[in-house]
Design a protein around this nucleic acid. Structure first.
Lengths: 104, 104
DNA sequence: CAATAAAATTGCAATTTTTCGATATAGCGA
DNA sequence: TCGCTATATCGAAAAATTGCAATTTTATTG
Protein backbone atom coordinates (compact mmCIF):
# COMPACT_ATOMS: atom_id res chain seq x y z
CA UNK A 1 0.00 0.00 0.00
CA UNK A 2 1.47 3.28 -1.07
CA UNK A 3 -0.84 5.08 1.37
CA UNK A 4 1.38 3.84 4.17
CA UNK A 5 4.55 4.34 2.11
CA UNK A 6 6.73 6.87 3.88
CA UNK A 7 8.59 8.76 1.18
CA UNK A 8 11.43 9.81 3.46
CA UNK A 9 11.96 6.21 4.54
CA UNK A 10 11.97 5.07 0.93
CA UNK A 11 14.57 7.69 0.09
CA UNK A 12 16.69 6.61 3.04
CA UNK A 13 16.61 3.01 1.88
CA UNK A 14 17.51 3.97 -1.69
CA UNK A 15 20.22 6.37 -0.53
CA UNK A 16 22.62 3.47 -0.23
CA UNK A 17 24.45 2.31 -3.35
CA UNK A 18 24.22 -1.38 -2.50
CA UNK A 19 20.49 -1.34 -1.78
CA UNK A 20 19.80 0.64 -4.93
CA UNK A 21 21.93 -1.80 -6.94
CA UNK A 22 20.00 -4.76 -5.55
CA UNK A 23 16.71 -3.21 -6.62
CA UNK A 24 18.07 -2.42 -10.05
CA UNK A 25 19.61 -5.87 -10.54
CA UNK A 26 16.26 -7.41 -9.70
CA UNK A 27 14.80 -5.72 -12.78
CA UNK A 28 16.37 -8.43 -14.92
CA UNK A 29 17.04 -11.29 -12.56
CA UNK A 30 18.06 -13.71 -15.30
CA UNK A 31 20.81 -11.33 -16.35
CA UNK A 32 22.27 -10.76 -12.91
CA UNK A 33 21.72 -13.96 -10.99
CA UNK A 34 22.42 -17.65 -11.67
CA UNK A 35 19.57 -20.11 -12.23
CA UNK A 36 18.25 -21.79 -9.12
CA UNK A 37 17.55 -25.45 -8.50
CA UNK A 38 14.21 -24.60 -6.99
CA UNK A 39 12.31 -21.47 -7.89
CA UNK A 40 12.66 -19.41 -11.06
CA UNK A 41 14.54 -16.15 -10.56
CA UNK A 42 11.95 -14.20 -12.55
CA UNK A 43 8.77 -15.84 -11.31
CA UNK A 44 9.62 -16.65 -7.72
CA UNK A 45 12.46 -14.27 -7.02
CA UNK A 46 16.14 -14.55 -6.15
CA UNK A 47 17.45 -16.19 -3.00
CA UNK A 48 19.53 -14.27 -0.48
CA UNK A 49 22.69 -16.23 -1.23
CA UNK A 50 22.67 -15.28 -4.91
CA UNK A 51 22.01 -11.65 -4.11
CA UNK A 52 24.81 -11.72 -1.58
CA UNK A 53 27.29 -12.98 -4.17
CA UNK A 54 26.23 -10.20 -6.48
CA UNK A 55 26.77 -7.41 -4.01
CA UNK A 56 29.88 -8.82 -2.34
CA UNK A 57 28.84 -8.04 1.21
CA UNK A 58 28.35 -10.38 4.15
CA UNK A 59 25.34 -12.61 4.51
CA UNK A 60 24.06 -10.70 7.51
CA UNK A 61 24.34 -7.32 5.84
CA UNK A 62 22.68 -8.59 2.69
CA UNK A 63 19.82 -10.05 4.70
CA UNK A 64 19.38 -6.80 6.62
CA UNK A 65 19.38 -4.76 3.42
CA UNK A 66 16.76 -6.98 1.87
CA UNK A 67 14.61 -6.65 4.97
CA UNK A 68 14.77 -2.86 4.76
CA UNK A 69 13.91 -2.92 1.06
CA UNK A 70 10.93 -5.05 2.00
CA UNK A 71 9.84 -2.73 4.82
CA UNK A 72 9.96 0.14 2.35
CA UNK A 73 7.58 -1.83 0.13
CA UNK A 74 10.06 -2.07 -2.73
CA UNK A 75 10.42 -5.86 -2.77
CA UNK A 76 8.44 -8.87 -1.65
CA UNK A 77 9.77 -11.95 0.11
CA UNK A 78 8.51 -15.46 -0.41
CA UNK A 79 9.73 -18.22 1.81
CA UNK A 80 9.99 -21.62 0.10
CA UNK A 81 11.54 -24.32 2.19
CA UNK A 82 14.89 -23.19 3.47
CA UNK A 83 15.13 -20.35 0.96
CA UNK A 84 13.69 -16.89 0.86
CA UNK A 85 13.14 -15.47 -2.59
CA UNK A 86 13.09 -11.74 -3.11
CA UNK A 87 11.62 -9.95 -6.08
CA UNK A 88 10.65 -6.42 -6.94
CA UNK A 89 7.24 -5.14 -5.89
CA UNK A 90 6.48 -3.61 -9.28
CA UNK A 91 3.06 -2.38 -8.22
CA UNK A 92 4.47 -0.36 -5.36
CA UNK A 93 7.42 0.88 -7.36
CA UNK A 94 5.05 2.15 -10.02
CA UNK A 95 2.95 3.87 -7.38
CA UNK A 96 6.07 5.37 -5.89
CA UNK A 97 7.09 6.87 -9.23
CA UNK A 98 3.62 8.35 -9.62
CA UNK A 99 3.68 9.70 -6.09
CA UNK A 100 7.04 11.34 -6.66
CA UNK A 101 5.76 12.90 -9.84
CA UNK A 102 3.00 14.53 -7.81
CA UNK A 103 4.67 15.29 -4.49
CA UNK A 104 8.27 16.01 -5.32
CA UNK B 1 22.74 18.66 -15.49
CA UNK B 2 21.09 15.36 -14.81
CA UNK B 3 23.91 13.56 -16.58
CA UNK B 4 26.14 14.31 -13.63
CA UNK B 5 23.32 13.80 -11.14
CA UNK B 6 24.24 11.01 -8.78
CA UNK B 7 21.01 9.26 -7.94
CA UNK B 8 22.25 7.85 -4.64
CA UNK B 9 23.35 11.31 -3.51
CA UNK B 10 19.99 12.76 -4.48
CA UNK B 11 18.26 10.04 -2.47
CA UNK B 12 20.48 10.78 0.51
CA UNK B 13 19.59 14.44 0.37
CA UNK B 14 15.87 13.70 0.12
CA UNK B 15 16.03 11.03 2.81
CA UNK B 16 15.79 13.73 5.43
CA UNK B 17 12.36 15.02 6.45
CA UNK B 18 13.48 18.63 6.78
CA UNK B 19 15.20 18.80 3.42
CA UNK B 20 12.28 17.11 1.70
CA UNK B 21 9.87 19.54 3.38
CA UNK B 22 11.92 22.51 2.20
CA UNK B 23 11.77 21.28 -1.38
CA UNK B 24 8.03 20.67 -1.11
CA UNK B 25 7.31 24.03 0.51
CA UNK B 26 9.14 25.73 -2.32
CA UNK B 27 6.53 24.38 -4.73
CA UNK B 28 4.18 27.15 -3.59
CA UNK B 29 6.42 29.76 -2.03
CA UNK B 30 3.63 32.32 -1.62
CA UNK B 31 1.71 29.82 0.51
CA UNK B 32 4.55 28.90 2.82
CA UNK B 33 6.73 31.99 3.12
CA UNK B 34 6.08 35.66 3.91
CA UNK B 35 6.50 38.32 1.23
CA UNK B 36 9.95 39.84 0.98
CA UNK B 37 10.95 43.50 0.78
CA UNK B 38 13.30 42.76 -2.05
CA UNK B 39 12.79 39.85 -4.41
CA UNK B 40 9.56 38.02 -5.11
CA UNK B 41 9.31 34.61 -3.46
CA UNK B 42 8.03 33.01 -6.65
CA UNK B 43 10.21 34.75 -9.21
CA UNK B 44 13.46 35.23 -7.32
CA UNK B 45 13.17 32.62 -4.62
CA UNK B 46 12.97 32.55 -0.83
CA UNK B 47 15.71 33.86 1.44
CA UNK B 48 17.42 31.62 3.98
CA UNK B 49 15.91 33.43 6.95
CA UNK B 50 12.35 32.74 5.83
CA UNK B 51 13.11 29.12 5.13
CA UNK B 52 14.76 28.83 8.51
CA UNK B 53 11.64 30.06 10.28
CA UNK B 54 9.57 27.52 8.40
CA UNK B 55 11.68 24.54 9.38
CA UNK B 56 12.50 25.59 12.93
CA UNK B 57 16.14 24.60 12.85
CA UNK B 58 19.20 26.78 13.39
CA UNK B 59 20.47 29.21 10.81
CA UNK B 60 23.61 27.18 10.22
CA UNK B 61 21.75 23.92 9.74
CA UNK B 62 19.27 25.53 7.38
CA UNK B 63 22.07 27.02 5.33
CA UNK B 64 23.86 23.68 5.18
CA UNK B 65 20.70 21.88 4.10
CA UNK B 66 20.07 24.39 1.35
CA UNK B 67 23.64 23.98 0.15
CA UNK B 68 23.19 20.21 -0.09
CA UNK B 69 19.90 20.61 -1.95
CA UNK B 70 21.75 22.85 -4.35
CA UNK B 71 24.66 20.42 -4.76
CA UNK B 72 22.10 17.75 -5.61
CA UNK B 73 20.76 20.01 -8.34
CA UNK B 74 17.33 20.31 -6.76
CA UNK B 75 17.38 24.06 -6.09
CA UNK B 76 19.18 27.10 -7.42
CA UNK B 77 20.65 29.94 -5.39
CA UNK B 78 20.69 33.56 -6.44
CA UNK B 79 22.64 36.07 -4.41
CA UNK B 80 21.13 39.57 -4.32
CA UNK B 81 22.83 41.98 -2.01
CA UNK B 82 23.05 40.48 1.42
CA UNK B 83 20.41 37.86 0.71
CA UNK B 84 20.53 34.50 -0.99
CA UNK B 85 17.30 33.42 -2.63
CA UNK B 86 16.61 29.75 -3.14
CA UNK B 87 14.07 28.29 -5.54
CA UNK B 88 13.34 24.91 -7.02
CA UNK B 89 15.25 23.77 -10.07
CA UNK B 90 12.15 22.54 -11.87
CA UNK B 91 14.08 21.44 -14.95
CA UNK B 92 16.30 19.13 -12.95
CA UNK B 93 13.46 17.88 -10.78
CA UNK B 94 11.54 16.95 -13.90
CA UNK B 95 14.58 15.16 -15.30
CA UNK B 96 15.01 13.37 -12.00
CA UNK B 97 11.44 12.07 -12.09
CA UNK B 98 11.97 10.85 -15.65
CA UNK B 99 15.25 9.22 -14.69
CA UNK B 100 13.62 7.44 -11.77
CA UNK B 101 10.86 6.20 -14.07
CA UNK B 102 13.52 4.59 -16.23
CA UNK B 103 16.15 3.46 -13.75
CA UNK B 104 14.25 2.58 -10.62
C1' DC C 1 16.53 -36.85 16.70
C1' DA C 2 21.19 -35.10 14.79
C1' DA C 3 23.50 -32.89 11.12
C1' DT C 4 23.36 -29.65 7.66
C1' DA C 5 22.14 -25.46 5.01
C1' DA C 6 19.87 -20.95 4.31
C1' DA C 7 18.39 -16.96 6.29
C1' DA C 8 17.45 -13.86 10.19
C1' DT C 9 18.85 -11.67 14.30
C1' DT C 10 22.09 -9.83 17.69
C1' DG C 11 25.94 -7.16 19.43
C1' DC C 12 29.35 -4.21 18.34
C1' DA C 13 33.15 -1.01 16.37
C1' DA C 14 33.77 2.25 12.76
C1' DT C 15 31.95 5.69 10.04
C1' DT C 16 28.61 9.09 8.65
C1' DT C 17 24.97 12.27 9.53
C1' DT C 18 22.68 15.60 12.29
C1' DT C 19 22.60 19.78 14.46
C1' DC C 20 24.37 23.30 17.13
C1' DG C 21 27.05 27.51 18.69
C1' DA C 22 30.76 30.23 17.39
C1' DT C 23 33.11 32.49 13.97
C1' DA C 24 34.00 34.26 9.28
C1' DT C 25 32.56 36.64 5.17
C1' DA C 26 29.92 39.83 2.19
C1' DG C 27 27.15 43.83 1.31
C1' DC C 28 25.01 47.91 2.87
C1' DG C 29 24.39 52.47 5.02
C1' DA C 30 25.84 56.18 8.31
C1' DT D 1 35.71 52.99 7.84
C1' DC D 2 32.57 51.01 11.49
C1' DG D 3 28.63 48.61 12.53
C1' DC D 4 24.71 45.89 11.28
C1' DT D 5 22.43 42.20 8.93
C1' DA D 6 22.19 37.94 6.16
C1' DT D 7 24.67 33.82 4.94
C1' DA D 8 28.28 30.62 4.97
C1' DT D 9 31.65 27.87 7.17
C1' DC D 10 34.02 25.55 11.05
C1' DG D 11 34.52 22.45 14.96
C1' DA D 12 32.43 19.43 17.97
C1' DA D 13 28.98 16.36 20.46
C1' DA D 14 25.12 13.30 19.86
C1' DA D 15 22.61 10.20 17.09
C1' DA D 16 22.07 7.17 13.21
C1' DT D 17 23.91 4.11 9.77
C1' DT D 18 27.17 0.72 7.99
C1' DG D 19 28.75 -3.72 7.88
C1' DC D 20 30.84 -7.64 10.15
C1' DA D 21 31.27 -12.01 12.95
C1' DA D 22 28.82 -14.81 15.85
C1' DT D 23 24.61 -16.78 17.10
C1' DT D 24 19.87 -18.23 16.51
C1' DT D 25 16.03 -19.69 13.87
C1' DT D 26 13.85 -22.34 10.21
C1' DA D 27 13.50 -26.10 7.27
C1' DT D 28 15.43 -30.39 5.12
C1' DT D 29 17.27 -34.97 5.22
C1' DG D 30 19.43 -39.06 6.89
Amino acid sequence: MVISMNIVEVFKVLGNPTRLAILQNLREPGKHFPPQDEGDVTIDGVCVGSIQEGVGLSQSTTSTYLASLQRAGLVTAKRMGGWTYYKRNEVNIKKLIELLGKEL
